[in-house]
Amino acid sequence: MLTTEEKHKIDHEISLVPSPKNACIEALKIVQQSHGWVSDESLKDVADYVGMSSAELDSVATFYNLIFRRPVGRHVILVCDSISCWVMCYEGIRDRLSEKLNIQYGQTTEDGRFTLLPNCCLGTCDRAPALMIDNDLYRDLTVEQLDEILEKYT
């Protein structure tokens, strides 16, 4: 069930476009913002609300990297694996995160705190290697900084 607040926000997005369908990505973002991800149930709720079939909406949802169709942890770590970060040896960062959190790409820690994902270029290549946790960008990274950074996220 969409909450009143979610419906209110989705209505606003619908008001800006010719047809409710055109607001479907915005609607998915709104639902993901409140739940962290988009469950099958949420997907159907949004589809019904904007007048699409679930299959049609899922074809859109699964196209985009940052609509999560599986549960994620409270914090999502996006490790840039693009060319400049690779040239600057980002693998040490990735491996240290994987080892410390005891998860691989696509997995979530048992306590539900972190999900680890690879991500293509974060657009900060002059300060590689880089990663993002939620809305925060970290750059010029060294392996030594990781413990302190992770501590900020509970």
């Binding site: 369908k21 607001a23 859109v60 990297n65």
Partner: peptide, 27 residues
């Protein structure tokens, strides 16, 4: 004038794919 933030996909930089994304479709 409105700001629209994407949800990730290189294809969105191609101008016609970008327009599809803005319309709420696959890019």
């Amino acid at each position: 004038m409105h700001l629209h933030t994407g949800v990730g996909r290189y294809m969105c930089g191609e101008e016609t794919a970008l327009l599809n994304a803005l319309e709420g479709k696959r890019a």
